[in-house]
Amino acid sequence: MRADARKNRDHLLAVAGTAIAEQGVDVALRDIARRADVGLATLLRHFPTREALLDALLRTGFDELTAQACALETSSTPGDALVSWLRDAVAWTTRYRGATALMAAAIQDTESALHASCVALRAAGARLLTRAQAADVARNDIDGADLFALVAMLAWLGDQPALAPRADRLFDVVSGAVLQSTTTP
């Protein structure tokens, strides 16, 4: 891709990210183009469908969270790594209103453009969870699919205006429950 085309694509993604954070994943593509100061045809040349735009935007974040999980595996204690990643995954997902439903659908739909990134994200979280379980700092009765569902649940909670004020406290409750060791004293 030419440097100017890459710059335009990156600008469109940045503007789309802001628009989706403000208005949700159903924001009109025409509004995104207008905010980016380009025509709709230019936006559609880079991203021919809404799903293509959302895929590019969300995949970048999923890939960053996956890479972060890999880094945390070697730089933090198992419990700290798991909670840090979980907090960042929830915060990132909450930033893009409506992304939770897309993630939940994409993990099940092998034809979705987001499927591979969601599977990689779930696997990254599962590795952190398994590591914490092996260190006996996380409960053993949950798995990576449960952790992925918890990310979606906590992000959904933060996406609801009436419930958002409780999101941080409930994150602490849930992460505390995940980190509860199953060893009896």
Rank of each mutant, 00 (worst) to 15 (best):
179 L>P: 02
54 L>C: 09
134 A>L: 12
168 D>V: 11
7 K>P: 01
158 G>R: 00
34 R>Y: 11
166 R>H: 15
169 R>N: 14
153 M>N: 10
94 T>H: 10
29 L>Y: 00
9 R>F: 06
110 T>V: 14
19 A>R: 06
135 A>R: 00
124 A>M: 08
33 A>S: 08
17 G>Y: 04
160 Q>A: 14
115 H>T: 04
139 R>F: 09
136 D>P: 00
100 T>Q: 05
65 L>Y: 08
7 K>M: 14
121 L>F: 09
43 L>W: 02
174 V>P: 06
148 F>S: 00
51 E>H: 10
74 T>K: 11
36 A>M: 08
164 A>N: 08
148 F>W: 07
128 L>E: 04
76 S>G: 02
157 L>E: 12
106 A>N: 01
78 P>K: 03
101 A>R: 10
14 A>Y: 07
51 E>Y: 07
105 A>Q: 11
107 I>D: 01
98 G>Y: 03
105 A>N: 05
125 G>L: 05
166 R>N: 14
80 D>H: 12
168 D>W: 03
99 A>L: 07
130 T>Q: 14
28 A>N: 13
115 H>I: 03
155 A>P: 02
43 L>H: 02
102 L>I: 04
93 T>D: 03
143 D>C: 06
46 H>M: 09
144 G>W: 01
142 I>V: 14
151 V>W: 00
56 A>M: 00
128 L>M: 06
146 D>H: 15
128 L>I: 05
37 D>N: 14
80 D>E: 15
96 Y>A: 05
147 L>P: 03
111 E>I: 04
25 V>H: 01
125 G>W: 01
98 G>S: 07
10 D>K: 10
49 T>V: 07
63 D>P: 03
72 L>E: 04
71 A>Y: 08
22 E>Q: 13
100 T>Y: 00
102 L>S: 01
175 S>H: 06
57 L>W: 03
6 R>K: 11
97 R>N: 10
110 T>S: 15
60 T>S: 13
174 V>Q: 08
8 N>Y: 06
5 A>F: 10
146 D>A: 13
47 F>G: 01
35 R>S: 12
68 Q>E: 15
51 E>A: 14
149 A>R: 11
30 R>H: 12
89 A>P: 03
